[in-house]
Amino acid sequence: MSGTVTETTSTTRGLLWLAWRRHRAALTAGGALLLALAGYVLYQRAGMVALLHDRNIAGCRIWQNPCNGMRFAPHDAPSPLRDAYERLDAHRPPLLVTGWLLLAVPVLIGTFVGAPLLARELESGTYKMVWSQSASRTRWLAALLGVPLTAAVAGTTALSALFTWWWWPARDQFAHLDRYATVPFDAVGPAAVALTVLSFFLGAALGLLIARTLPAMAATLAVTAGLLTALGALRPHPRDGGFWWVQWTQAGLCLALAAALAAFCVRRIRRRPV
Protein backbone atom coordinates (compact mmCIF):
# COMPACT_ATOMS: atom_id res chain seq x y z
CA MET A 1 0.00 0.00 0.00
CA SER A 2 2.77 2.39 0.88
CA GLY A 3 5.00 1.09 -1.92
CA THR A 4 5.77 3.15 -5.00
CA VAL A 5 3.02 3.42 -7.55
CA THR A 6 4.11 1.52 -10.66
CA GLU A 7 4.49 3.68 -13.73
CA THR A 8 2.17 2.87 -16.64
CA THR A 9 5.14 2.38 -18.99
CA SER A 10 6.31 -0.57 -16.98
CA THR A 11 2.97 -2.38 -17.37
CA THR A 12 4.12 -3.23 -20.88
CA ARG A 13 7.17 -4.85 -19.37
CA GLY A 14 4.92 -6.61 -16.91
CA LEU A 15 2.72 -7.92 -19.69
CA LEU A 16 5.77 -9.06 -21.61
CA TRP A 17 7.00 -10.85 -18.52
CA LEU A 18 3.59 -12.51 -18.13
CA ALA A 19 3.67 -13.66 -21.75
CA TRP A 20 7.22 -15.02 -21.42
CA ARG A 21 6.32 -16.78 -18.19
CA ARG A 22 3.35 -18.48 -19.88
CA HIS A 23 5.18 -19.62 -23.00
CA ARG A 24 8.53 -20.47 -21.45
CA ALA A 25 8.27 -24.20 -22.14
CA ALA A 26 7.02 -23.77 -25.71
CA LEU A 27 9.66 -21.15 -26.53
CA THR A 28 12.45 -23.29 -25.12
CA ALA A 29 11.24 -26.38 -26.98
CA GLY A 30 10.85 -24.38 -30.20
CA GLY A 31 14.34 -22.95 -29.86
CA ALA A 32 15.86 -26.38 -29.35
CA LEU A 33 13.99 -27.74 -32.39
CA LEU A 34 15.15 -24.79 -34.48
CA LEU A 35 18.77 -25.37 -33.54
CA ALA A 36 18.54 -29.07 -34.37
CA LEU A 37 16.98 -28.36 -37.77
CA ALA A 38 19.51 -25.64 -38.52
CA GLY A 39 22.34 -28.06 -37.79
CA TYR A 40 20.76 -30.67 -40.07
CA VAL A 41 20.31 -28.20 -42.94
CA LEU A 42 23.91 -26.97 -42.60
CA TYR A 43 25.17 -30.54 -42.72
CA GLN A 44 23.02 -31.61 -45.69
CA ARG A 45 23.72 -28.50 -47.72
CA ALA A 46 27.46 -28.77 -47.19
CA GLY A 47 27.36 -32.35 -48.51
CA MET A 48 25.26 -31.44 -51.54
CA VAL A 49 27.28 -28.36 -52.52
CA ALA A 50 30.50 -30.31 -52.15
CA LEU A 51 29.11 -32.98 -54.50
CA LEU A 52 28.02 -30.42 -57.12
CA HIS A 53 31.44 -28.83 -56.98
CA ASP A 54 33.68 -31.91 -56.73
CA ARG A 55 31.91 -33.80 -59.49
CA ASN A 56 31.56 -30.68 -61.63
CA ILE A 57 27.81 -31.10 -62.16
CA ALA A 58 26.65 -27.65 -60.96
CA GLY A 59 23.90 -26.43 -63.32
CA CYS A 60 23.27 -29.90 -64.76
CA ARG A 61 19.67 -31.09 -64.62
CA ILE A 62 19.73 -34.55 -63.19
CA TRP A 63 20.27 -37.26 -65.86
CA GLN A 64 21.09 -34.51 -68.41
CA ASN A 65 23.55 -36.00 -70.89
CA PRO A 66 26.01 -34.60 -71.82
CA CYS A 67 26.74 -31.89 -69.29
CA ASN A 68 29.77 -29.74 -68.50
CA GLY A 69 31.78 -31.73 -71.08
CA MET A 70 31.04 -35.13 -69.49
CA ARG A 71 28.82 -37.83 -70.95
CA PHE A 72 27.46 -41.26 -70.04
CA ALA A 73 29.37 -44.34 -71.09
CA PRO A 74 27.55 -46.42 -73.73
CA HIS A 75 25.21 -49.31 -72.80
CA ASP A 76 24.36 -48.03 -69.30
CA ALA A 77 27.87 -48.84 -68.18
CA PRO A 78 29.10 -47.03 -65.06
CA SER A 79 30.53 -43.61 -65.75
CA PRO A 80 31.55 -40.66 -63.56
CA LEU A 81 28.58 -38.56 -64.72
CA ARG A 82 26.03 -41.35 -64.06
CA ASP A 83 27.62 -42.02 -60.70
CA ALA A 84 27.49 -38.32 -59.80
CA TYR A 85 23.81 -38.17 -60.74
CA GLU A 86 23.07 -41.23 -58.64
CA ARG A 87 24.70 -39.58 -55.66
CA LEU A 88 22.85 -36.34 -56.34
CA ASP A 89 19.56 -38.24 -56.49
CA ALA A 90 20.19 -39.41 -52.95
CA HIS A 91 20.01 -35.77 -51.83
CA ARG A 92 16.47 -35.37 -53.11
CA PRO A 93 14.52 -37.26 -50.41
CA PRO A 94 16.13 -35.36 -47.50
CA LEU A 95 15.44 -32.07 -49.28
CA LEU A 96 11.80 -32.95 -49.90
CA VAL A 97 11.21 -34.41 -46.44
CA THR A 98 12.72 -31.32 -44.81
CA GLY A 99 10.47 -29.21 -47.01
CA TRP A 100 7.37 -31.09 -45.86
CA LEU A 101 8.55 -30.78 -42.29
CA LEU A 102 8.95 -27.02 -42.68
CA LEU A 103 5.52 -26.85 -44.27
CA ALA A 104 4.15 -28.39 -41.10
CA VAL A 105 5.59 -25.48 -39.08
CA PRO A 106 2.92 -22.89 -39.98
CA VAL A 107 0.19 -25.49 -39.51
CA LEU A 108 1.54 -26.45 -36.09
CA ILE A 109 2.05 -22.84 -35.04
CA GLY A 110 -1.54 -22.00 -35.96
CA THR A 111 -2.92 -25.11 -34.27
CA PHE A 112 -0.77 -25.37 -31.17
CA VAL A 113 0.16 -21.71 -30.53
CA GLY A 114 -2.41 -19.47 -32.21
CA ALA A 115 -5.63 -21.33 -31.49
CA PRO A 116 -5.19 -22.04 -27.75
CA LEU A 117 -3.95 -18.51 -26.93
CA LEU A 118 -7.34 -16.80 -26.69
CA ALA A 119 -9.52 -19.90 -26.58
CA ARG A 120 -7.89 -21.04 -23.36
CA GLU A 121 -8.31 -17.64 -21.72
CA LEU A 122 -11.99 -17.58 -22.68
CA GLU A 123 -12.63 -21.21 -21.79
CA SER A 124 -11.03 -21.06 -18.37
CA GLY A 125 -12.23 -17.56 -17.59
CA THR A 126 -8.75 -16.30 -16.75
CA TYR A 127 -9.37 -13.36 -19.07
CA LYS A 128 -11.63 -11.90 -16.38
CA MET A 129 -8.71 -11.83 -14.00
CA VAL A 130 -6.39 -10.25 -16.54
CA TRP A 131 -8.95 -7.77 -17.88
CA SER A 132 -9.50 -6.42 -14.41
CA GLN A 133 -5.82 -5.53 -14.08
CA SER A 134 -4.75 -2.03 -15.03
CA ALA A 135 -3.37 -2.79 -18.50
CA SER A 136 -5.91 -2.07 -21.25
CA ARG A 137 -7.43 -4.97 -23.15
CA THR A 138 -5.79 -4.00 -26.41
CA ARG A 139 -2.41 -3.85 -24.72
CA TRP A 140 -3.08 -7.20 -23.10
CA LEU A 141 -3.99 -8.69 -26.48
CA ALA A 142 -0.90 -7.16 -28.07
CA ALA A 143 1.38 -8.61 -25.43
CA LEU A 144 -0.41 -11.96 -25.41
CA LEU A 145 -0.11 -12.38 -29.17
CA GLY A 146 3.06 -10.34 -29.65
CA VAL A 147 5.53 -12.55 -27.84
CA PRO A 148 4.61 -15.88 -29.48
CA LEU A 149 4.14 -14.18 -32.85
CA THR A 150 7.58 -12.57 -32.70
CA ALA A 151 9.11 -15.88 -31.73
CA ALA A 152 7.24 -17.71 -34.50
CA VAL A 153 8.22 -15.15 -37.13
CA ALA A 154 11.85 -15.15 -36.02
CA GLY A 155 11.91 -18.94 -36.01
CA THR A 156 10.29 -19.41 -39.42
CA THR A 157 12.39 -16.65 -40.96
CA ALA A 158 15.51 -18.49 -39.84
CA LEU A 159 14.17 -21.86 -41.03
CA SER A 160 12.93 -20.56 -44.35
CA ALA A 161 16.22 -18.73 -44.98
CA LEU A 162 18.18 -21.89 -44.20
CA PHE A 163 15.99 -24.06 -46.39
CA THR A 164 16.03 -21.55 -49.27
CA TRP A 165 19.81 -21.47 -49.01
CA TRP A 166 19.93 -25.27 -49.24
CA TRP A 167 17.38 -25.60 -52.06
CA TRP A 168 18.61 -22.70 -54.22
CA PRO A 169 21.78 -24.31 -55.62
CA ALA A 170 19.73 -27.43 -56.47
CA ARG A 171 16.61 -25.64 -57.74
CA ASP A 172 17.22 -26.65 -61.36
CA GLN A 173 19.00 -29.90 -60.78
CA PHE A 174 16.03 -32.04 -59.89
CA ALA A 175 13.97 -32.40 -63.03
CA HIS A 176 10.74 -33.50 -61.36
CA LEU A 177 10.83 -30.90 -58.61
CA ASP A 178 8.32 -28.26 -59.69
CA ARG A 179 9.37 -25.12 -57.90
CA TYR A 180 5.76 -23.89 -57.72
CA ALA A 181 4.56 -27.05 -56.02
CA THR A 182 3.63 -26.78 -52.34
CA VAL A 183 7.10 -28.08 -51.52
CA PRO A 184 9.36 -26.20 -52.06
CA PHE A 185 7.30 -23.06 -52.80
CA ASP A 186 5.51 -22.69 -49.46
CA ALA A 187 8.58 -23.70 -47.49
CA VAL A 188 10.96 -21.10 -48.90
CA GLY A 189 11.32 -17.34 -49.00
CA PRO A 190 8.84 -14.76 -47.73
CA ALA A 191 5.88 -17.05 -48.54
CA ALA A 192 6.84 -19.40 -45.70
CA VAL A 193 7.07 -16.56 -43.16
CA ALA A 194 3.81 -14.96 -44.30
CA LEU A 195 2.05 -18.33 -44.05
CA THR A 196 3.15 -18.62 -40.44
CA VAL A 197 1.80 -15.16 -39.62
CA LEU A 198 -1.49 -15.96 -41.37
CA SER A 199 -2.04 -19.32 -39.73
CA PHE A 200 -1.15 -17.81 -36.35
CA PHE A 201 -3.86 -15.15 -36.67
CA LEU A 202 -6.23 -17.68 -38.17
CA GLY A 203 -5.78 -19.75 -35.02
CA ALA A 204 -6.17 -16.71 -32.76
CA ALA A 205 -9.35 -15.56 -34.53
CA LEU A 206 -10.89 -19.03 -34.53
CA GLY A 207 -9.99 -19.37 -30.86
CA LEU A 208 -11.73 -16.07 -30.14
CA LEU A 209 -14.82 -17.09 -32.11
CA ILE A 210 -15.12 -20.66 -30.88
CA ALA A 211 -13.92 -19.90 -27.33
CA ARG A 212 -13.04 -23.56 -26.71
CA THR A 213 -9.52 -24.85 -27.04
CA LEU A 214 -9.88 -28.24 -28.69
CA PRO A 215 -12.51 -27.35 -31.29
CA ALA A 216 -10.56 -24.18 -32.10
CA MET A 217 -7.39 -26.22 -32.62
CA ALA A 218 -9.15 -28.77 -34.80
CA ALA A 219 -10.78 -26.00 -36.85
CA THR A 220 -7.42 -24.24 -37.30
CA LEU A 221 -5.79 -27.47 -38.44
CA ALA A 222 -8.52 -28.07 -41.01
CA VAL A 223 -8.59 -24.47 -42.28
CA THR A 224 -4.79 -24.16 -42.61
CA ALA A 225 -4.54 -27.51 -44.37
CA GLY A 226 -7.30 -26.38 -46.73
CA LEU A 227 -5.53 -23.06 -47.26
CA LEU A 228 -2.27 -24.78 -48.21
CA THR A 229 -4.08 -27.06 -50.65
CA ALA A 230 -5.92 -24.13 -52.20
CA LEU A 231 -2.72 -22.09 -52.54
CA GLY A 232 -0.99 -25.02 -54.26
CA ALA A 233 -3.87 -25.39 -56.71
CA LEU A 234 -4.50 -21.70 -57.46
CA ARG A 235 -0.91 -20.44 -57.66
CA PRO A 236 0.16 -19.37 -61.17
CA HIS A 237 3.05 -21.39 -62.63
CA PRO A 238 4.92 -18.97 -64.92
CA ARG A 239 7.00 -20.88 -67.47
CA ASP A 240 10.21 -18.99 -66.84
CA GLY A 241 11.29 -16.40 -64.31
CA GLY A 242 8.83 -14.66 -62.02
CA PHE A 243 9.46 -16.99 -59.10
CA TRP A 244 10.19 -14.26 -56.62
CA TRP A 245 7.39 -12.13 -57.96
CA VAL A 246 4.92 -14.93 -57.22
CA GLN A 247 6.56 -15.42 -53.82
CA TRP A 248 6.16 -11.80 -52.80
CA THR A 249 2.61 -11.58 -54.17
CA GLN A 250 1.53 -14.61 -52.18
CA ALA A 251 3.32 -13.30 -49.09
CA GLY A 252 1.58 -9.94 -49.49
CA LEU A 253 -1.83 -11.55 -49.80
CA CYS A 254 -1.26 -13.73 -46.76
CA LEU A 255 -0.05 -10.77 -44.68
CA ALA A 256 -3.04 -8.66 -45.73
CA LEU A 257 -5.38 -11.46 -44.68
CA ALA A 258 -3.47 -11.83 -41.41
CA ALA A 259 -3.79 -8.09 -40.75
CA ALA A 260 -7.53 -8.29 -41.35
CA LEU A 261 -7.79 -11.18 -38.88
CA ALA A 262 -5.72 -9.24 -36.31
CA ALA A 263 -8.04 -6.23 -36.69
CA PHE A 264 -11.02 -8.53 -36.22
CA CYS A 265 -9.48 -9.88 -32.99
CA VAL A 266 -8.88 -6.36 -31.62
CA ARG A 267 -12.42 -5.20 -32.44
CA ARG A 268 -14.00 -8.23 -30.91
CA ILE A 269 -11.92 -8.08 -27.74
CA ARG A 270 -12.78 -4.39 -27.29
CA ARG A 271 -16.49 -4.98 -27.69
CA ARG A 272 -16.90 -8.19 -25.77
CA PRO A 273 -18.31 -7.42 -22.33
CA VAL A 274 -16.48 -8.96 -19.43
Binding site: D54, A73, A77, P78, S79, P80, R82, D83
Partner: peptide, 8 residues
Protein backbone atom coordinates in the same frame (compact mmCIF):
# COMPACT_ATOMS: atom_id res chain seq x y z
CA UNK B 1 34.32 -45.07 -54.10
CA UNK B 2 34.40 -41.77 -55.94
CA UNK B 3 34.37 -42.97 -59.54
CA UNK B 4 32.93 -45.79 -61.58
CA UNK B 5 36.35 -47.41 -61.95
CA UNK B 6 36.90 -47.23 -58.23
CA UNK B 7 33.50 -48.81 -57.63
CA UNK B 8 34.35 -51.68 -59.94
Amino acid sequence: ADSADATE
